[in-house]
Write a protein that binds this DNA or RNA. Structure first.
Lengths: 299, 299
DNA sequence: ACCAACCATAGATTTTATCTATAACCAAAC
DNA sequence: GTTTGGTTATAGATAAAATCTATGGTTGGT
């Protein structure tokens, strides 16, 4: 098995036709035929069924293609990172939960780099994808939190995937409420205080507040539950219905406008926010600088 | 870049020495030197620093090796699955949460296969690893549950990773208590009933009961909390201290002995247990038969 | 029956990988 | 300071492979 063979069968599968695939690959048709045949012989499988109308993937071939794509996905990472190095295109990839400081640090890093050719990715996503991205080197660094409920599971997962976790700071759960809510007068709130009011949450799992509430507080009983899809709608309801939503205290308050305020929530819980790195590779200069910026922003 | 080159640099890095690595790879030393040099030139990087005492990985090379290993890990899956097919070695891999029916089905599948040469893996692990295993084709099928709290997050994660979820059945949370516990008389229990008794849980995140309680009920207040490392200790305490532990109702009761009984727990929650498959490949015959057995065991 | 659109095969050619032999290097021992 | 032993690098020959051109074979449509 060679990478070429894998690329070939993917192209042939896409084209559904060896002749056209050969043109696309800039090789002669018999070469392609031979390459595929060789791969099939090596593993004693039939990837394509041939006919005078072209080729078709066999079930076996479909399965094999799944594996082939996995390999090629990984090789693409190498090509992306190392090919065209002389083009001077700077690359940097982060996966993070929704934290404004992570985005700020990202922007700052981009500014500092002073590059005119670059490819930066800021992937705001969920815990699983963060761990997966970093474990498979799609991102160089990940940012997530631990608390007493997820800590064991997350730590074990990190260990299984050969990732390190370095704490940045501890955050406390906050409640977002409307400026005129009766709760606005209090300095800090308890779950008991919140009980009479409607609780708002996002329908979409991609938002951190949902994930956060899911893992920490969603099981606490609540009589009035409102689930919305849109962030703006949520804020409207916060104000109009004296509702509340639970979030980490590090979500960007500027985005919320002057009518929304955050209050500390008194619960026996914490969030330890930190970054994860793959232990198998040494962090790049970009990554180290990003960590520096993170530290300066969160201390 | 070729797979050979990647294999070569990994071996050289392991040996710390081109000469010995060449012997191990059954090629001549100059061939190996040339192969490495070519790879380094292709990407304009320096993977090894050479000296008369052998070679050493540069920081750059260390990073590159991380990527190389990722690619090779994927190719190994192909080799494992397809190489030596004529040896008739049957292979099957499942990742699952800790469900006795999943293990039973696994054993049944093994029996039915009637193979004398095989390699079967039953990977009892956590949600993340199940999804990761199936997404990256290390397992052909995964078994996990959804409930109203994790459903959105899990479904989005599955979608992101191009996995399908098929429900098998709904399970209800159960409480395990000692035979002589005062709670044993009741037909079903509420969280209120449990309040006076000590709650037991595992220290280790790998056990499903922990993960389950973590996601569904661990945030409910509890005055008496006992955390143990050992399953036998937990059962001792269940009996000796009239404690309880919360679990899915599908954990194997036979394992627990006659002194432990399960009671349904009345909570507004459910567990939808099902299996996940990669959408990119067609399930193998083994996988389809495994699903059949699962269905017959859980209906 | 014939054409058109495929894939398969054969044999030549080019390219790549590998081999053997040997040079160059460098540190440690003498 | 020179020899020695272990190392990587280079040169040129050789073997292996990938690819090419030309052509044959199959099959559905006309």
């Amino acid at each position: 098995m060679t990478l070429k063979q894998l690329q070939y069968i993917v192209t042939v599968a896409e084209e559904g036709n060896i002749t056209n695939a050969a043109k696309k690959l800039f090789i002669a048709q018999p070469s392609l035929t031979a390459a595929i045949r060789e791969l099939e012989n090596e593993y004693n499988i039939t990837i394509f069924s041939r006919s005078n109308k072209g080729i078709k993937l066999t079930p076996e071939g479909e399965e094999f293609l799944g594996y082939a794509r996995q390999v090629l996905d990984q090789t693409e990472l190498i090509e992306e990172r190392y090919a065209g190095k002389e083009s001077g295109k700077l690359k940097f990839f982060v996966s993070s939960q929704h934290y404004s400081f992570a985005v700020e640090a990202f922007v700052e890093l981009l500014k500092r780099s002073g590059a005119d050719k670059y490819e930066f990715h800021m992937r705001e996503t969920q815990t699983f994808n963060i761990i997966d991205d970093v474990a498979h080197l799609r991102s160089e660094i990940g940012i997530l939190y631990l608390n007493k409920f997820n800590e064991e599971v997350i730590r074990k997962t990190l260990k299984d995937n050969n990732l390190s976790f370095t704490p940045l700071f501890k955050a406390e759960p906050h409640v977002f409420i409307g400026k005129n809510s009766p709760l606005a007068k209090k300095k800090s709130l308890t779950l008991e205080d919140l009980k009479p009011y409607p609780r708002l949450s996002y329908e979409q799992g991609s938002h951190n507040s949902f994930y956060f509430s899911e893992e920490i507080l969603s099981t606490v009983d609540c009589d009035k539950e409102l689930v919305v899809l849109d962030r703006a709608t949520l804020f409207n309801m916060l104000i109009g219905l004296n509702g509340y939503t639970i979030c980490s205290g590090v979500i960007n308050e500027e985005l919320n406008g002057p009518n929304i305020i955050a209050k500390k929530l008194k619960v026996d819980d914490y969030m330890e926010i930190g970054y994860i790195l793959p232990m198998s590779i040494r962090p790049s200069h970009m990554t180290l600088e990003y960590i520096d910026i993170l530290k300066s922003l969160t201390k």
